[in-house]
């Protein structure tokens, strides 16, 4: 029984069957990659996991509880953090404030009316945020506006924000999309480091095979909205079905 259990999930947009009979089990403390050609339904599947979309059929269980019908913020409070394809951070806020918000969210829940105490007096949150920034090698940027940082730094900050919540499952949506090779390798190293340092399950949606094969312990190949194979990375490479899905039948 995995920490995330997807059973028979189907989703239709008008005439397009985006997902059909998707079954997926992500084992606790593993790195599970979901790959597939464009239009395979990877993003749709991810959106079904985080509450952005509600599947037409099937169930999605996280740690024995259904996530269906819950809002994104409720699902986050259950222990799932999401990293977006283009880094989503609070651009108008400082790096330090960016780091404090998720910490407040995990400490105080989805709403708390703390309107008169000052942020700087919340020493436990401040200290933890400082330490997270140290861990992410961003302590020198703490007073910078987050929007002014490079893309690689924004990605690093976003991952740091998600980690500060000590999520049980970290979902990454093409974390290296549009990145230069050096930035991609940095991100891979960062994720490896994260996996080494803490008990965390990572599910990663990725296009870049280099990233997938350097990180994943388990790979699910999605094609035309349905899982083709699920196997260890070394078996995926040589699998003819996978090659066919990516390159077409003639290959």
């Amino acid at each position: 029984m995995g920490i995330l259990e997807v059973k028979n999930v189907g989703k239709r947009f008008g005439g397009l069957q985006a997902l059909s009979e998707v079954n997926l089990s992500v084992a606790e403390n593993s790195v599970h990659a979901i790959i597939g050609p464009n239009g395979a339904g990877k993003s749709t599947l991810l959106n079904c996991l985080v509450g952005k979309l509600i599947p037409d059929t099937g169930s999605v269980m996280f740690d024995g509880q259904s996530v269906l019908g819950r809002s994104p913020f409720e699902i986050n409070q259950m222990g799932i953090s999401r990293v977006f394809q283009t880094p989503e951070i609070f651009g108008d806020l400082t790096v330090m404030e960016n780091m404090m918000i998720p910490i407040f969210a995990s400490r105080d829940g989805s709403f708390r009316m703390h309107a008169v105490e000052s942020v700087v007096s919340e020493s436990e949150v401040v200290d933890y945020a400082e330490q997270m920034l140290e861990d992410m090698n961003m302590a020198d940027k703490r007073h910078m506006h987050a929007a002014a940082m490079s893309r690689g730094d924004k990605r690093r900050l976003e991952i740091g924000m998600c980690l500060s919540q000590k999520p049980r499952l970290l979902l990454l949506d093409e974390p290296t999309a549009g990145m230069a090779r050096a930035d991609t390798n940095n991100t891979i190293d960062l994720l490896k480091q994260i996996k080494e340092d803490r008990d965390i399950t990572i599910a990663i949606i990725e296009h870049d095979m280099h990233v997938v094969f350097s990180l994943a312990e388990r790979i699910t190949v999605l094609a035309q909205g349905t899982p083709l194979v699920e196997d260890a990375p070394e078996n995926i490479k040589g699998n003819p079905k996978v090659r066919e899905a990516y390159l077409g039948e003639s290959a």
């Binding site: 994104p72 913020f73 953090s81 609070f90 651009g91 806020l93 918000i101 989805s110 709403f111």
Partner: peptide
């Protein structure tokens, strides 16, 4: 409140309503 102005989507996925 400033985070709402800046990026409501991120706030939602950070566990804040």
């Amino acid at each position: 409140l400033r985070a709402i102005k800046s990026n409501q989507q991120r706030l939602n996925y950070t566990g804040i309503n």
